[in-house]
Simulated assay, not measured.
Amino acid sequence: MTSFNSIADPPRPQPAHAGWALWEMGFRPLYLLASAFAALSIGLWALQFTGWLGRPYLQGPLWHAHEMLFGFALAVVVGFLFTAGRNWSNRPTPTGWPLAALAALWVAGRVLVLTPFGWAAMLANVAFPLAAAISLAIPFIAARNRRNYFFVGLLLMMSAAVLGIHLAQLGVIQLPGWVGIQLALDVMLFIMAVMGGRVIPMFTNNGVPGAKATRHPLLEKAALGTVLALLLADAMQLHGVWLAALAGLCAAAHLVRWSLWRPWKTARAPLVWVLHAAYLWIPVHLALRAAAAAGWVAPSVATHALTVGAIGGLIIGMMTRTARGHTGRPLRADGSDVACYVLILLAALVRVLVPLAAPAWIMHATLWSAALWSGGFALYTVRYWPVLTRPRIDGQAG
């Protein structure tokens, strides 16, 4: 498997403006937009509480969940897939004005959910993953890259999930909005499980000599298969003991999978250990989902283990690594990178562990976690603005 940090770009003319490269590859604008939004959205969340935003179309926890999934996380996934997809297919993915148009569509989705224009917000938010799926399908089909067709299907599922949320919000269908959120969370979990299984053992062996991270075929099938089973259970709105048993089995599979990657050998390689630390939140999330299904803990604790710990941690780890690798920089984390990792992982620990240990402190935990999260992604935005907007330092295209 070829590293995502050595993507071979199809020959293309050099940009006309040598000092500006934002539209040269998918990760550049989408990482920058996502990180800035991750930092700012917590402030918007606070403004909703105070009533300063009036009465937007999406409000309260539904807005928060919608924007973290279909705004922040989905933008990073699309940016990553556009970048990696060039390597997998040896075909171009959107650059230039098509990429700018897609980024503008993403921005429109973020703005419109804060207005009263619900139908326009729905169209923008459904169109973004749909357009991304089509843009990814074109090079994959041209290259007959069947191994990665399922990513197109997952993006289509995200489009369907957000469509269901909006149609329910607009009163067209009778469906709790949180069903679509949960299904989207499961799709995001599956994406992370697939990509984590592909890249974390490879990056571990490449970055830590003698680590000997391994994968077991049967365990891989069990880990991914139980996530798909969990997605199906959530689609059927299964609850109680059966959901608890399934989530517990899934947690065990992912914990054993993670242990085979030898995480204890990565302490001196921040670009690697951050991925291991983030992936550990997946079995933690699944164990907490089992406990929540049994009525032992609040479901929100399990959700934030996934969203803050796993999604936030894997995203900050991959955004620093791919931004460095695809701009010709050394694959070594500097102090700013490590600070980003620590802030995001601390945000997860505070948001999950404090409410478990002291439920009465949940408001304090939420505020501190939000501050840590915003600080981590604000630091990334400032630190990587020149990296993501300027040409590669090695003179290559991309």
Rank of each mutant, 00 (worst) to 15 (best):
S6N: 14
I7K: 00
I7S: 02
I7T: 09
A8H: 14
R12Y: 01
Q14V: 15
P15E: 09
A18Q: 13
W20P: 11
Y31A: 06
L32E: 02
L32V: 09
A36F: 14
F37K: 06
F37A: 12
A38Y: 05
A38M: 09
L44G: 12
W45D: 08
W45L: 10
A46H: 02
L47C: 05
L47M: 09
L47V: 00
G51Y: 01
W52C: 11
L53N: 05
L62G: 12
A65H: 02
F72Y: 15
L74Y: 08
L74I: 09
A75T: 07
V78F: 01
L81S: 09
F82Y: 10
N87M: 15
W88M: 02
W88Y: 08
R91K: 03
P92T: 10
T95S: 14
L99H: 00
A103L: 01
A108H: 01
G109I: 06
G109R: 01
F117I: 11
G118T: 03
M122I: 13
F140D: 10
I141P: 12
N145Y: 09
L155W: 10
M158R: 08
L167P: 05
G177L: 01
L183T: 08
V187D: 05
F190P: 02
M192H: 07
G197P: 04
V199Y: 09
F203V: 08
N206V: 11
L218Y: 11
E220K: 08
A222N: 03
G225N: 03
L230Q: 02
L232V: 12
L232M: 11
A247Q: 02
G248M: 00
W261N: 01
W264Q: 14
W264T: 13
H276N: 04
H276I: 00
A277T: 09
Y279A: 03
L280E: 02
I282S: 00
L286I: 03
R289T: 03
R289C: 06
A293M: 00
W296M: 02
A298S: 13
T303G: 15
G309M: 01
A310Y: 00
G312C: 11
L314Y: 04
I315R: 02
I315G: 09
G317L: 01
M318V: 15
T320Q: 11
R324H: 15
D334H: 04
S336N: 14
L346I: 09
V350P: 03
V352T: 04
P355F: 00
A357T: 06
W361Y: 13
M363I: 15
A370G: 10
L372A: 08
G375I: 03
G376W: 00
F377V: 00
L379F: 10
Y380N: 09
W385Y: 12
P386R: 09
T389W: 01
G395L: 03
G398E: 07
